[in-house]
C-alpha cells in the first residue's frame, strides 16, 4: 500500500552487459536516474538504445548467467541489485508493477483474465478468496473494461487489443505498486485507444501516488505525458531534464536530430531530416568517446570530450558530452 512517504527509485551508474559468444557487450552503460512518486519519467530513444533493457534490469528479469549488471538501483532503502530471487519476488508485482508492450503475448493464452489479474494478489496479500475476487472486479472496473463479471471469465484472445492492454495494466496495478514501469504501453494500439490508455495511466498514478517510468519511442507520447525526460542513445542517457526543457530547449545533437526528423505541420514540401549513418550493433558500439560522434561527422573532434560526462546546463537539465555547445546542423552553417 502506498504510504505518504516520498518513495523513490535512484538508479546510479547502472550498466547491463549481455554475453554474446563468450564476450560481454554493454546494452546499457552508466545510466543514472531519479524517479519520485507522483512523477512520470519518460525514457525515450530508438530501438536498440537500451531503454527496455534498463526496465528489465530494474525488474531483475535477466538471466544472471547471461548478463553482467553493475551499479546500484536503490529502491525504498535497499539496493535491488543485491537482492536474491526470493527478495525480488516480494518487490516485483507488489511494489513495482510492469506493463508490457504486446498485450496479446504478455498474457497467458490458457488462463482466464480474472485468474491472471488475481495471481499477484495471491502472492502479495493475505486477502481471502472473496476479497480477492472483489478486488479483481474493482481493478477491471478501474481500468475501464465494460462487463467486468463476464470479462474475468474470458480468455485473452476473446478481447480486443485495447481491452487486453487494460488487462495488462490491471495486472500491474493490482497491488498498488509505488512504481510502475510501462514499456511501450501504447505502441500496439490505435491513436484514439492510445490517448485513452495514457489518460488512464495518469489517473491511476494520481490515485496511487505512484511513480511511472514510461518507456517509448514516440516523442508525441512523451510530450503529452512526461514530467521528466531522459533521452537514450546507444545505451547511455545523452540528455535529461523536465519535459519542458527537453522540448523547448533541446541541446544534445541527438535530441535535436530526433525532433527534427519528425514530420511537422507545413513540412510537406521539405525533405525530413535524416540522421547520417545508422545505430551501430551491440558488438560494434564504440567503447569510448562520444557515441553519437560518427552520426555528426562534420563536428570536429575537438568539440567532443574524450570521456563524455553529463553537464548541468541549467537546474535539472543535463547533457552528455560538450559537442552540444557549438552544434549546428549542416544546413545551418
Amino acid at each position: 500500500m502506498a504510504d505518504e512517504e516520498n518513495h523513490f527509485l535512484k538508479i546510479e551508474d547502472v550498466s547491463t552487459a549481455f554475453k554474446i559468444q563468450g564476450k560481454y557487450y554493454p546494452a546499457v552503460s552508466d545510466v543514472s536516474l531519479d524517479i519520485h512518486n507522483d512523477e512520470i519519467v519518460a525514457i525515450v530513444g530508438e530501438s536498440g538504445c537500451g531503454k527496455s533493457t534498463l526496465a528489465t534490469t530494474i525488474m531483475g528479469l535477466h538471466d544472471p548467467a547471461e548478463t553482467k549488471i553493475g551499479g546500484k538501483i536503490e529502491f525504498e532503502g535497499q539496493d535491488l541489485l543485491t537482492l536474491n530471487e526470493d527478495q525480488m519476488n516480494k518487490i516485483r508485482g507488489a511494489k513495482i508493477g510492469m506493463i508490457f508492450q504486446d498485450p496479446l503475448s504478455a498474457l497467458n493464452p490458457l488462463k482466464r483474465i480474472g485468474d491472471q489479474i488475481q495471481e499477484g494478489l495471491d502472492y502479495h496479500t493475505k486477502m481471502t478468496e472473496a476479497e480477492k475476487k472483489a478486488r479483481v472486479l474493482e481493478l477491471v472496473n478501474q481500468v475501464g473494461i465494460p462487463h467486468p463479471e463476464r470479462v474475468i471469465r474470458q480468455f485473452p484472445h476473446e478481447l480486443s487489443g485495447g481491452m487486453r492492454q487494460r488487462v495488462v495494466i490491471a495486472i500491474a496495478i493490482a497491488c498498488k505498486p509505488d512504481l510502475m514501469i510501462a514499456d511501450e504501453p501504447t505502441t500496439a494500439l490505435d491513436v484514439t485507444i492510445q490517448a485513452q490508455i495514457l489518460d488512464l495511466l495518469k489517473d491511476i498514478q494520481k490515485e496511487n501516488h505512484a511513480g511511472i517510468i514510461l518507456i517509448t519511442h514516440d516523442l508525441g507520447v512523451v510530450a503529452e505525458t512526461a514530467d521528466e525526460v531522459a533521452v537514450m542513445y546507444a545505451g547511455q542517457v545523452v540528455e535529461k531534464g523536465s519535459a519542458k526543457q527537453i522540448f523547448d530547449n533541446p541541446l544534445h545533437p541527438y535530441t535535436r536530430s530526433l525532433l527534427r526528423s519528425m514530420p511537422q505541420k507545413d513540412s510537406e514540401n521539405d525533405d525530413l531530416y535524416v540522421i547520417e549513418g545508422s545505430v551501430p550493433s551491440l558488438q560494434k558500439m564504440p567503447q569510448d568517446g562520444c557515441k553519437f560522434a560518427p552520426r555528426i561527422p562534420w563536428v570536429p573532434e575537438s568539440e567532443h570530450e574524450a570521456h563524455p560526462t553529463m553537464h548541468e546546463v541549467e537546474p535539472g537539465h543535463r547533457v552528455r558530452c560538450t559537442c552540444y555547445k557549438n552544434f549546428k546542423f549542416q544546413d545551418e552553417a
Binding site: 491513436v191 484514439t192 508525441g220 507520447v221 510530450a223 522540448f247
Partner: peptide
C-alpha cells in the same frame, strides 16, 4: 475530429488543454 484530437502534440504547454 476525434482522430485528430488523439494525435499527441509535441508541445508541453498545451498538455492540459489538449486533454
Amino acid at each position: 475530429k476525434r482522430l485528430l484530437s488523439a494525435i499527441p502534440e509535441t508541445s508541453v504547454e498545451g498538455r492540459a488543454e489538449a486533454r
